[in-house]
Simulated assay, not measured.
Amino acid sequence: MARRYGGNPAAAIILIAADIAVLILVLWILFFVFDANRANDLVDWVHHAANWLAGWSKDLFTVDNAKWRTVLNYGLPAVVYTLIAHAVAGRVRRA
Results as ranks from 00 to 15, higher is better:
21 A>W: 08
85 A>H: 09
5 Y>C: 03
55 G>W: 09
83 L>A: 15
58 K>E: 12
19 D>Q: 14
91 R>A: 15
50 A>W: 00
90 G>W: 04
91 R>N: 11
18 A>P: 02
77 P>Q: 04
11 A>G: 09
55 G>T: 03
74 Y>T: 00
41 D>V: 11
17 A>E: 10
7 G>R: 05
17 A>C: 13
70 T>C: 13
39 A>C: 06
66 A>V: 12
25 L>V: 04
86 H>P: 09
91 R>H: 12
83 L>P: 11
80 V>I: 14
71 V>S: 00
95 A>V: 05
10 A>D: 06
12 A>F: 07
1 M>Q: 13
66 A>D: 15
5 Y>T: 04
2 A>M: 11
13 I>N: 09
49 A>H: 00
63 V>F: 12
43 V>R: 07
87 A>N: 07
77 P>M: 03
25 L>R: 01
93 R>V: 04
32 F>R: 08
33 V>A: 14
10 A>W: 10
51 N>L: 10
85 A>T: 09
61 F>N: 01
33 V>S: 10
75 G>Q: 07
93 R>C: 01
20 I>W: 14
75 G>C: 04
27 L>I: 08
62 T>W: 12
57 S>R: 07
24 I>E: 00
8 N>E: 06
66 A>Y: 14
33 V>T: 13
48 H>T: 05
9 P>N: 06
41 D>N: 13
69 R>D: 08
80 V>C: 06
44 D>E: 13
94 R>D: 08
34 F>K: 08
45 W>S: 14
16 I>C: 10
88 V>E: 09
14 I>H: 02
37 N>K: 13
27 L>W: 08
62 T>S: 15
14 I>R: 01
75 G>I: 05
71 V>L: 08
85 A>I: 09
40 N>K: 09
22 V>Y: 07
53 L>Y: 06
32 F>K: 04
33 V>M: 09
29 I>C: 02
9 P>R: 09
33 V>R: 11
45 W>N: 10
44 D>P: 00
7 G>K: 02
86 H>E: 15
54 A>C: 04
5 Y>H: 09
34 F>C: 02
8 N>D: 11
51 N>M: 14
